[in-house]
């Protein structure tokens, strides 16, 4: 039996971790579903009000973008930052490290929970609630009134994800930012093993300080290198920029996962 990876041990570890992580996760999912439902209930246009439509006859459902991004960030970051908290507690760290599974298996299970379960779980919960409200709206579309006289007929509401998939422009931008949720989980997963206490706050503060420091350094370096030079305008190819956004965010994600693995390997009780 391999000492690096064994599918049976991996399965056992997934089941065992569910005992600890699963309860926190399910609790957070219930709270999340409640928050999404509350926001939808408050902001979804009602047939009794005078609503805002765009020039194509679409109901104003723009609140969904902000809600999806902000809640998504909070959910995946909070869930990821709790994953390795056991390793910061004296009473639990020995038991966790002594479980007969390889460090690699323990690391892969952490990726499984923080990437697969957390990110996909969020998308699923958001999609189902969004779908429910969209179905309700479309079923009652003819009862909606506009604040202004409409020049086009009222259009059926699309699900948030359908909008992204069916619109090429949306899809292009979303593909470039595809690695961002994984980048967020990788940052907070590393924070959960790096810090022994107050993982979330410490990780968030570290990211802010790091981002400011890097931004300042880049600005200062560019300033020094281009001093006394003539300014010219270069038109970047948007496709290349989007590709670079994807490549850089994916590379940083993989690098952070690697550091997390090393940190887990070197963890002492």
């Amino acid at each position: 039996m391999s000492n690096l990876f064994n599918l049976n041990r991996f399965g056992l570890l997934v089941k065992r971790q569910w005992m600890d992580f699963g309860k926190i996760y399910l609790g957070t999912v219930i709270v999340l579903a409640g928050i999404i439902f509350a926001f939808y209930s408050y902001f979804t246009p009602s047939s009794t009000d005078h609503n805002i439509f765009d020039h194509e006859g679409n109901l104003d459902m723009r609140f969904r973008y902000g809600l999806f991004l902000i809640l998504g960030f909070l959910f995946i970051s909070i869930t990821s930052s709790t994953y390795f908290t056991n390793l910061g507690q004296k009473s639990r760290v020995m038991h966790e490290l002594m479980i007969p599974a390889s460090t690699f298996e323990k690391f892969i299970v952490s990726i499984f929970y923080t990437v697969m379960v957390t990110v996909l779980g969020y998308l699923l919960v958001f999609y189902l609630i969004d779908l429910g409200f969209v179905k309700y709206l479309n079923a009652n579309l003819n009862t909606f009134k506009s604040a202004e006289t409409l020049k086009t007929p009222i259009k059926a509401v699309d699900c948030l994800f359908d909008q992204v998939i069916s619109d090429k422009k949306y899809l292009k931008y979303c593909s470039a930012f595809f690695a961002f949720p994984f980048l967020i989980t990788s940052i907070f997963l590393l924070g959960s093993i790096y810090f022994n206490r107050f993982h979330y706050i410490k990780t968030a503060v570290s990211v802010i300080i790091f981002t400011y420091a890097v931004g300042y350094l880049i600005y200062k370096t560019c300033d020094l290198l281009t001093r006394n030079m003539t300014q010219i305008n270069i038109h970047f190819n948007e496709k290349n920029v989007l590709l670079w956004i994807f490549l850089v965010s994916a590379t940083i994600t993989v690098a952070l996962w690697f550091i997390t693995y090393i940190r887990l390997k070197e963890k002492e009780a």
Partner: peptide, 9 residues
């Protein structure tokens, strides 16, 4: 910390 050792401790 190989699993083969950990399952014996």
């Amino acid at each position: 910390r190989q699993p083969a050792m950990l399952e014996q401790i």
